[in-house]
């Protein structure tokens, strides 16, 4: 279950950022400072987002799932969550220039061996189930604390 692995120190309700680069410096920086990702992680996030954007428009809700190749992550797979007061502009996944105002970011620090595909399917399916649940997205936006966010995700996972 994802909620059990969530760390309050990596959950940021009421965050503010002017650009996705700033989002990555803040949230990606926290992952690196906490030792989950390598020094190259933030730069790799920015570089990868430019080529392979991760913005999603889920029935009007802006979500993003930035991540890097495994080479930039240490041994543990962790997820950081940031909820933004004001939308941050991301390009939509699968497009060059269609943008979406993102307020919910699930930053995935996926560990593994380079070239190893198909790992973490269970965790990824749970994340997909979460970001496709617009009622949950609404509740996440209104959550005031990390614990509340973890509780919401726990309740969702219990229905899967």
């Amino acid at each position: 279950m994802i909620w059990e692995t969530l760390k309050p120190a990596l959950i940021f309700p009421g965050a503010e950022a002017a650009s996705y680069e700033e989002v990555f410096q803040q949230v990606g920086g926290a992952l690196t400072k906490a030792g989950y990702t390598k020094e190259t992680y933030v730069e790799a996030l920015i570089e990868r987002e430019r080529e392979y954007p991760t913005g999603l428009d889920v029935e009007g809700w802006g979500v993003a799932i930035p991540h890097t190749p495994v080479e930039h992550v240490n041994s543990e797979t962790v997820i950081a969550i940031a909820i933004f007061k004001d939308p941050v502009e991301f390009v939509q996944m699968g497009t060059d220039d269609e943008t979406v105002g993102v307020r919910i970011v699930f930053m995935l620090a996926i560990a593994g061996k380079p070239g190893e595909h198909g790992a973490h399917l269970d965790e990824l399916q749970r994340i997909i189930a979460i970001i496709q649940d617009t009622a949950l997205l609404q509740n996440l936006l209104n959550a005031q604390s990390a614990d509340e966010i973890i509780k919401l995700i726990e309740e969702k996972e219990k229905t899967l």
Partner: peptide
Amino acid sequence: CGGAVATSTI
């Protein structure tokens, strides 16, 4: 996908 680590797995 870009890195064959997340979305292509789904």
